[in-house]
Measured scan of single mutants.
Amino acid sequence: MDETGKELVLALYDYQEKSPREVTMKKGDILTLLNSTNKDWWKVEVKITVNGKTYERQGAVPAAYVKKL
Rank of each mutant, 00 (worst) to 15 (best):
L69N: 00
V44D: 00
V9D: 02
K18W: 04
V66N: 00
G52S: 05
K26M: 08
K26G: 04
Q16F: 13
K6E: 09
L8M: 11
E3P: 13
M25S: 00
Q58T: 11
R21N: 15
K53H: 12
S19A: 07
K43G: 07
K39W: 05
K43E: 15
K39N: 11
N35S: 13
Y13I: 09
L33Y: 01
T54W: 08
L10I: 15
W41P: 00
P20S: 11
E45S: 15
T54S: 11
A63E: 04
E7R: 10
W41M: 05
K39R: 10
L34S: 02
L69C: 14
N35M: 06
Y15Q: 01
M25V: 09
L34D: 01
I48Q: 07
L34K: 05
N38D: 15
V23R: 02
L33V: 06
Y15C: 05
E3L: 14
T24H: 03
Y55W: 09
T24V: 03
K18H: 07
V66R: 00
D40R: 11
K26W: 06
K43I: 15
D14R: 02
A11H: 02
M25L: 08
R21S: 13
L33G: 00
T54L: 10
L69Y: 07
K26C: 11
T54D: 09
V50T: 08
T24C: 04
V46T: 11
P20V: 09
Y65T: 08
T49R: 08
D29V: 04
K26V: 08
R21V: 10
K26R: 12
E7V: 14
V46H: 07
V46Q: 11
A11V: 09
V23F: 10
N38H: 11
A64G: 11
S19G: 12
L10E: 11
Q58G: 04
N51A: 10
N35G: 07
G52P: 01
L31A: 06
E7G: 10
A11W: 04
L33Q: 01
V44G: 00
L10H: 02
I30T: 05
E45W: 05
G52E: 06
G5K: 14
D2P: 13
K26A: 07
S19W: 05
V46I: 14
V44K: 00
T37S: 14
G59L: 08
E56N: 14
L10P: 00
Q58I: 13
K43N: 10
K6A: 10
P62E: 04
T54Y: 07
T4N: 12
K18I: 06
R57N: 03
E45C: 14
E22T: 06
L33A: 01
V44W: 01
N51E: 11
G28P: 01
V61D: 02
K27S: 06
G59P: 00
D2V: 14
K18V: 08
L69S: 01
D14S: 07
E3M: 14
T24A: 04
K27M: 06
L33P: 00
